[in-house]
Design a protein around this nucleic acid. Structure first.
Length: 576
RNA sequence: CGGAGCGUAGCGCAGCCUGGUAGCGCGCUUGGUUUGGGACCAAGAUGUCGGAGGUUCGAAUCCUCUCGCUCCGACCA
């Protein structure tokens, strides 16, 4: 491709509404342009990366035995009503009517449609297992789209759905996808973790997320420093070897704490550390049940664990007036002593004695509070958020390390939730009708490219890994008006094209500074500079974008060298 | 959804408080000089000041409504 005839509108300045680095660089590098909130156009340069990502996914999915298909963006309401999600999915589901006033929605995911296909086309166990996937634009009307392609409303997703007769078969389909996903992200050259995750509202009982490690990640994850356990903090289990309640040494004593509401304030006021306090949260469940939750002062509630424990869809912090009603005090002074509502305590509380709690009165706390003697909890459980330094639940010695991650893939075992709702059954070898056991597997295509930039950039611009880079080689023709320079660059360009190397020739009539700056910004992995100075000696300059290493290479050798370096950069060492 | 902020040229912004000819930088066009890290000179083009209504002799500026966008919050007990 010739730069002079291409559309690659780079920006010198950072657009005001781009918050994170990948969004800024994708805008500045002429990859995307915003059309509306959370909705983007992919310009030619960005599309090339996207297509590469898609191709890697296709190859690995095909290799794992999945089959590509394509389902519609517009879904009829009937299917969604049948699964019950027309009501349940909420405002994220973009609904509209056709000219006959029939209800439709833009597909945010395609369980309904795929299950409909399979129930109408698959009748026998002999046709299984089956894994169908598509790469399709999804629409989810997010509350708050942000970060460019990272959380858009319209976005490209690879979604796959597996169908098996038995649970064991579904496990094997899941395992294949797990490995395919590892292969995909390895091939992209990404630093990622596969972590255990909560399956959320999609349902099912087992799930892994694939997280690209990056500071800007929206998820917290922990991984063990000595075994391969890793999990989303929403899910990460905590274990305590033995929790012995220390002997109480203090009497319960009320203390005035004027205006001291937060844990930090109370701890400072009483000259104690937050670990010596117990915080009492008043929460409400989806069913409007109000209860109190106890946590060590420095810990954070994991509301997903709590919701799972209580077998409810969600829990929220109670409103101030509810807190007042339950505790008799404004928020900030709740405590377990004398409370009339159910009390659920984090297991860790068992290991505490002589702690401080709210006294359910304005500007009042208790010191020297002790379990059983002063109050009791109806249930102890793991309900707090895991943190760095916590012990690994899977191995003896390990401690958690914590990371921020960008969720680029998520795989679920669905079970029979959708097949039962949509009556997708097949006959087994006994001639008996059985619901299919399903799994579903997603990858955010655009998000993965954004995550790759998030992980691979420097102060001058993008440093995309070779497998995702829009072009492999940039040939910079320094002075197009110099015949020798022009001819040498043109020849090189042609030779690279002949070898099927993806090359962008910067033949613009611009000053060198502009070409170098743009070259750094767009981050093509290998850059050859053809200029009069080196050419006099029969050389061109080869610069590796990532390392910044520059070397003089003879014109006669450069093609071979480039070919070698491109192919090396595309070679992935397979996982053992 | 709650809170905050912003909509002025393609991009980044000033002007608004205190109403009176719509500006700056970059980019763009033309000509010339330049050509190894975002050049210089000269001459240009470009705006429903997000939209609607109101106040006023007069509104980018004041008032009301509306639409769009961005950020923050959803761990405070």
């Amino acid at each position: 491709m010739r730069y002079s005839q291409y559309l690659l509108p780079t920006l010198k300045e950072t657009p005001a509404d781009a918050e994170i680095i990948s969004h800024q660089l994708m805008m500045r590098g002429g990859m995307i342009r915003k059309v509306a909130a959370g909705i983007y156009s992919y310009l030619p340069f960005g599309l090339r990366s996207l297509r590469k990502m898609e191709q890697i996914i296709r190859e690995e999915m095909d290799k794992a035995g999945a089959i590509e298909c394509l389902m519609p963006m517009a879904n009829p309401a009937e299917l969604w009503q049948e699964s019950g999600r027309w009501e349940k999915y909420g405002k994220e589901l973009l609904r509209f009517k056709d000219r006959k006033s029939a209800d439709f929605c833009m597909g945010p995911t395609h369980e309904e449609v795929i299950t409909d296909i399979v129930r109408n086309t698959v009748n026998s166990y002999r046709q299984l297992p089956l894994n169908l996937y598509q790469i399709q634009t999804k629409f989810r009307d997010e509350i708050r789209p942000r970060f460019g392609l990272m959380r858009g409303r319209e976005f490209i997703m690879k979604d796959a759905y597996s169908f098996d007769m038995e649970d064991a078969g579904a496990d094997s389909s899941y395992a294949k996808m797990f490995q395919a996903y590892r292969n995909i992200f390895n091939r992209c050259g990404l630093n990622f973790r596969s972590v255990e995750a909560d399956s959320g509202t999609i349902g099912g009982n087992f799930s892994h997320e694939f997280m690209v490690l990056a500071e800007s990640g929206e998820d917290g994850i922990v991984s063990c420093d000595s075994c391969d356990y890793a999990a989303n903090v929403e899910k990460a289990e905590l274990v305590y070897a033995e929790l012995e309640t220390p002997v109480a040494t203090q009497e319960l004593q009320q203390v005035d704490t004027p205006g001291q509401k937060s844990i930090a304030e109370v701890a400072t006021f009483l000259q104690l550390s937050p670990q010596q306090l117990v915080k009492t949260l008043i929460v409400q469940t989806a069913e409007d049940e109000v209860l109190a939750v106890l946590l060590r002062g420095d810990r954070e509630l994991n509301d997903i664990k709590l919701a799972n424990l209580l077998d409810t869809d969600w829990v929220v912090m109670a409103e101030d007036d509810v807190v007042k009603e339950v505790t008799g005090a404004p928020t900030g002074f709740a405590g377990p002593i004398g409370l009339q509502v159910k009390v659920v305590a984090d297991s860790e509380i068992k290991a505490m004695a002589d702690f401080v709690v709210g006294a359910n009165g304005v500007d009042s706390h208790y010191r020297g509070a002790n379990l059983e003697r002063d109050f009791s909890a109806s249930q102890f459980a793991d309900i707090r958020q895991a943190e760095a330094g916590d012990s690994c639940p899977r191995c003896e010695a390990g401690k958690f390390e914590s990371w921020r991650g960008i969720e680029v893939g998520h795989i679920f075992k669905l079970g029979t939730k959708y097949s039962e709702a949509l009556n997708a059954t097949v006959l087994d070898d006994q001639g008996k009708s059985k619901p299919l056991v399903m799994g579903c597997y997603g990858i955010g295509v655009g998000r993965t490219v954004a995550a790759a930039i998030e992980q691979n950039h420097d102060e001058n611009g993008m440093v995309l890994p070779m497998p995702l880079a829009p072009f492999q080689v940039l040939v910079t023709m320094l002075n197009p008006k110099d015949d020798e320079v022009r001819e040498a660059a043109e020849t090189l360009y042609q030779q690279l094209l002949d070898l099927n190397i993806e090359v962008l020739l910067d033949d613009r009539n611009e000053r060198p500074g502009i070409k170098f700056k743009d070259g750094d910004l767009i981050g093509i992995p290998l850059r050859v500079t053809v200029g009069a100075r080196s050419l006099k000696e029969g050389n061109v300059e080869l610069k590796v974008r990532k390392s910044g290493d520059v070397s003089l290479v003879a014109v006669t050798d450069v093609v071979t060298k480039l070919q070698q370096q491109v192919s090396e950069a595309l070679t992935v060492v397979p996982e053992s």
